[in-house]
């Protein structure tokens, strides 16, 4: 499904600020996998997602999606296969466009755009139906500008927009981190629901170890640009936060004492 072969990524290569962001990553993700990704700040989580999405190109290595080599594809071209939800709720929607206009934009993800009307009347009922699933009352506000919505409402709408046209890969970059705990929980449940319903292949970055353990069927821990832990199936099911921290210490020793504070 997704294959990362020997992905290496530096930032500011050759300067004093050089950062070795991804260290020869090899990762195979199967169709329908829901992978949670954890790791301390600067571990390379977002860089990994950005490499898959095409936000920037790796310095070396190959990226395969559906056994298609997409390494040289620019971001807009990969949009055919990939949907993304960002941490910042403001990044996923257009504030000065209406809810229906935003949904119309998303319903054409990766497709050719022509001179047909942007919002077609036959789409409206479908949009309303999909918005009803959220239970936020947005189905009665199709003509409201998205800038008027709260962060949580915008993120819920973004989740819907990211999945209304089934993506081959769904990338969630700490998509609940900027929300209050209650809203975050709602969005997380919505995520689980949508992923389950459409059997989406998903990568979700999170800073919350509990979420990382209770969601998905596979867990990856990144550290200093490499994959430190990769747990699947039974191994992941029986995992506890305590185990995870213990694993962390075992591999890394005392130097990670500070990180354990962050992760706790």
């Amino acid at each position: 499904m997704i294959g990362l072969n020997g992905i290496v990524k530096y930032f500011h290569r050759g300067s004093v600020n050089e950062v070795f962001a991804l260290d020869n990553i090899d990762l195979q993700i199967e169709e329908g996998d829901f992978v949670t990704v954890i790791g301390s700040n600067g571990a390379g989580k977002s860089t990994l997602l950005n490499c898959i999405a095409g936000g920037f190109f790796p310095d070396s290595g190959k990226i395969l999606i559906n056994s298609q080599d997409v390494t040289a594809w620019p971001e807009y071209k990969r949009a055919k296969l990939i949907s993304r939800v960002f941490q910042d709720p403001l990044l996923g929607t257009c504030p000065s466009a209406t809810i229906e206009q935003n949904m119309a934009l998303a319903s054409l993800r990766g497709k050719k755009r022509g001179l047909a009307r942007g919002v077609k009347s036959r789409d409206r009922d479908r949009f309303r139906e999909e918005l009803k699933q959220l239970g936020l009352g947005l189905d009665k506000r199709l003509l409201d500008k998205v800038g008027l919505l709260s962060g949580g409402q915008r993120q819920a709408l973004t989740m819907l927009m990211a999945t209304m046209l089934r993506p081959d890969v769904l990338l969630l970059d700490e998509h609940i981190a900027a929300l209050d705990p209650k809203t975050a929980n709602q969005i997380l449940l919505l995520t689980q629901e949508i992923v389950k319903q459409s059997k989406l292949t998903t990568l979700m970055i999170t800073h919350n170890m509990k979420h990382a353990i209770s969601f998905g069927n596979r867990l990856i821990m990144l550290h200093q640009g490499g994959i430190l832990l990769d747990l699947k199936g039974e191994e992941k099911k029986n995992l506890t936060v305590k185990d995870l921290l213990a694993q962390f210490y075992k591999t890394q020793g005392e130097e990670l004492a500070l990180d354990s504070l962050l992760l706790n």
Partner: peptide
């Protein structure tokens, strides 16, 4: 309005 969003929706 939001270039990052529209790029991730497949627009050059």
């Amino acid at each position: 309005d939001n270039p990052q969003m529209i790029r991730s929706l497949g627009v050059n």
